[in-house]
């Protein structure tokens, strides 16, 4: 099945630093996408449902 293993790497000699690098990029991407979607797309999409300034007046 094409899994040509050229060397055995055990648990203690393996540091997934490639994974760590990718996941740091992912972290940054998620943060930027979130900030953009929340503060630009959502907050800018007015009007938004707001609390009434004097909510007791009607109650």
């Amino acid at each position: 099945m094409g899994s040509r293993v050229s060397r055995e790497i055990g648990h203690d000699e393996y540091d997934p630093w490639g994974t760590l690098s990718l996941i740091v990029i992912y972290f940054v991407a998620l943060t930027l996408m979130w900030l953009f979607t929340y503060f630009v797309e959502f907050i800018g999409n007015t009007p938004t449902v707001m609390g009434m300034i004097v909510p007791v007046m009607l109650g």
Binding site: T46, P47, T48, V49, M50, G51
Partner: peptide, 22 residues
């Protein structure tokens, strides 16, 4: 569409939402 005014209208229930158009 194009705003954040979004609610479900469910028989038996009353949705209350306050907005202000500029």
């Amino acid at each position: 569409p194009g705003t954040n005014i979004n609610a479900m209208a469910i028989p038996g229930q009353v949705a209350e939402l306050t907005v202000e158009f500029d």
